[in-house]
Structures are given as structure tokens and as C-alpha cells.
């Protein structure tokens, strides 16, 4: 039984100039303790997809189709007050910018105590306070500092605190949306290491969102490559690394510097992502694809199974692969 199951998920942002389809027909599932990476350029719909899992797609976004099941319950059908107990307790979210993610007028400790006592109303103030101290210590922050305000911490420290808030109630799933993008390169690895070690200790599943495929390859069991709201490829990290199928994935991998390859030629993918108000017909990637055929411009390629746990949305694999409409199993 998967912890999370997303099926045919489609999300629109209606705007005055027409609807932006930020996420289209995406399906995947995640088992307890598994790690999934969402990779793609900025604007490809990663955050929209991530936020939909806690049903917080920003205004004016609407989920127009599909389901999101956590422990078999379709959260899209839950009333708001029940949804509140999923957020924070079953699924937690870590945002990109730690500098703005904490309430500036609230002490750090108060953030934790409030969280614990909201979800576990029987917890006394003292007990919540003690628990907060323990969590904060595990983050590598002095427990005296829980009386400080957010502005008294550096960005890296604040992201540690956000991680602490995410794991405080021991949720089954943590969604980390570009958790290190806003931070110095030096602290990035430390934050990701902290996240990984805590994840292992608590046995949580993780969805790691990043525009940086190298980070995801290093730290996730399986990977979804997103492009303009579409899932272009879905595979285990090892498969994705050794045997990338989609021309876009291949391009992304070629643009990652690799210290082991001394004579590596770094190649950036030419062109830029499409205007989401007028996306190209057919495959969303064809204007930038060097393999584009006639059919790519008129027809959307279906998701094709090309191996065990490996799917790609590309006409190049039509004959070899096994054609499937939707991947319900992983």
C-alpha cells in the first residue's frame, strides 16, 4: 500500500489572459520511507505539484482533475478542518526561502510549542517546551536560543529551524521545495545532510524538489523530470543516471559538471522553456529538441514504459517500449 498516490493530476491557474496549465496529467506513487526527486527548470510546475499534496495550491490555482491519496484517503475530498490535521502531522512542507518562512514577531520556541499543542491538544506547556528543546538540539542549535526571534538567526539556521518544524510531529512525508536554493553553497550540503539524517532516523518519505538535477541524483531513490507541467521521464536514480531516455533528461545530465570526467564537455540545452499561456502543440519540448520529428509537433507523446520502473514521454521510444497510458504502479 503506497503512502502517497497521485493520479492524473491536472492543475490550472486561471488568469485574465487565459488559463495556465501548470501541472498536467501527472501520476506517481511513493512508499513509506522512500525518497522522490522532482527536477525541472523554474516554472515547470514543481512547487504547484508539491503544494497540491498538502492542498495549498496558491490562489487562483485549481485542481481540475485527478486524485491525491495519502494512506488511501483522497485528500481532495476532505473537508478543510480534516485537511488541517494532514498538514504538519502527516505531510510537512519546507519552503524555499527560510528568511521569510518564520513569523517575524514570534519567538522560535513559540513556533514549535504552538505546532505541538495545535496537533496534540493534550500536551502541557511544559512538555511541549521540553520537546522543543530536544528537537532544536537535534538540529545543531543551542537550546537556549529558542527564546530568540527569527531575525537573530542566519539563513542556514532558519532553514534548520524550518526542517525542525517539519519533522517535529514525525510526519510520514516531508516535501522539501528547493530547501537550499536561497542559501550559500557552503551551507547547502550541510542542510541537505541534516535533512537526510533526520529523515533516516524518523523513517519518513521525502519529496525533494530542485531545479538542480545533481542534488536529486545524489539523494533520491527515484526521480520525476518535469517540463512545462508535464512529466517527461520517471525512473529510479540509478536508471536515470546510467540510462537517461528523454532528450531533455540527457541534456540536463550533460549540463551537470562531473569531477570524475576531466575531458567533459558541458552543454547547455539551447532555447528556453515555453510561454505557459501558449505552450507548443504536441510535445512541450519539441522546439528545443534536436530529435524532433513531425509527429512531435502535432501529437502529445504518451507515457511509455521503457524498463522496470522507467517511463518516458517521448515518441523516440514508441516501438521499443511498452505503451501504457498511465503508470499506476511503480
Amino acid at each position: 500500500m503506497p503512502l502517497l498516490e497521485v493520479g492524473s493530476l491536472t492543475i490550472d491557474y486561471p488568469t485574465s489572459r487565459g488559463a495556465i496549465r501548470a501541472v498536467e496529467d501527472i501520476s506517481f506513487s511513493l512508499k513509506k520511507g522512500e525518497t522522490l526527486g522532482l527536477a525541472g527548470e523554474s516554472g515547470s510546475g514543481k512547487s504547484t505539484l508539491g503544494l497540491s499534496i498538502i492542498r495549498l495550491v496558491p490562489y487562483p490555482g485549481v485542481i481540475v482533475k485527478g486524485h491525491i491519496k495519502i494512506d488511501e484517503t483522497d485528500i481532495l475530498k476532505l473537508p478543510e478542518d480534516e485537511m488541517r490535521f494532514i498538514r504538519g502531522r502527516k505531510a510537512a512542507y519546507i519552503f524555499q526561502d527560510p528568511m521569510t518562512s518564520l513569523n517575524p514577531v514570534k519567538r522560535i520556541g513559540a513556533h514549535f510549542i504552538e505546532l505541538i499543542r495545535t496537533h496534540e491538544p493534550n500536551t502541557g506547556k511544559e512538555e511541549a517546551f521540553e520537546r522543543t528543546k530536544t528537537v532544536v538540539k537535534n538540529l545543531g542549535i543551542l537550546s537556549e536560543r529558542i527564546n530568540d526571534y527569527p531575525h537573530q538567526f542566519s539563513g542556514g539556521m532558519r532553514q534548520r529551524i524550518m526542517i525542525g518544524l517539519a519533522i517535529a510531529l514525525n510526519p510520514d512525508l516531508v516535501i522539501a521545495d528547493e530547501p537550499t536554493t536561497a542559501l550559500d553553497v557552503i551551507v547547502q550540503a550541510k542542510i541537505l545532510d541534516l535533512l537526510e539524517s533526520l529523515r533516516k532516523v524518523y523513517g519518513m518519505a521525502l519529496i525533494l524538489i530542485s531545479h538542480d538535477l545533481s542534488i536529486i541524483l545524489e539523494r533520491c531513490d527515484k526521480i520525476i523530470i518535469m517540463y512545462a507541467g508535464h512529466m517527461l521521464e520517471y525512473a529510479t536514480s540509478i536508471e536515470m543516471h546510467r540510462n537517461p531516455k528523454h532528450p531533455y533528461t540527457q541534456g540536463l545530465l550533460q549540463s551537470i559538471p562531473n569531477i570524475e570526467l576531466s575531458d567533459q564537455k558541458l552543454v547547455a540545452i539551447p532555447g528556453s522553456p515555453p510561454d505557459m499561456l501558449n505552450p507548443p502543440k504536441g510535445c512541450r519540448f519539441w522546439p528545443r529538441c534536436s530529435y524532433a520529428k513531425k509527429i512531435c509537433r502535432v501529437k502529445e507523446p504518451p507515457l511509455i514504459k521503457v524498463g522496470r520502473n522507467h517511463f518516458v514521454r517521448c515518441f523516440l521510444y514508441g516501438k521499443k517500449g511498452v505503451h501504457v497510458e498511465r503508470n499506476r504502479k511503480s
Binding site: I86, R87, Y93, D97, S101, L115
Partner: peptide, 19 residues
């Protein structure tokens, strides 16, 4: 962001609005 983050932690609507 901190308002969205507060909602994402499942805090009560009134806490998010007023606090």
C-alpha cells in the same frame, strides 16, 4: 511565505489570520 508556512503546519485558521 510565513503565512503559507503556518497553514502548511496545519495551524488553526484563526491563528493564521490573527496571530
Amino acid at each position: 511565505d510565513f503565512v503559507t508556512a503556518a497553514k502548511a503546519r496545519g495551524l488553526k485558521e484563526s491563528t493564521v489570520t490573527y496571530g
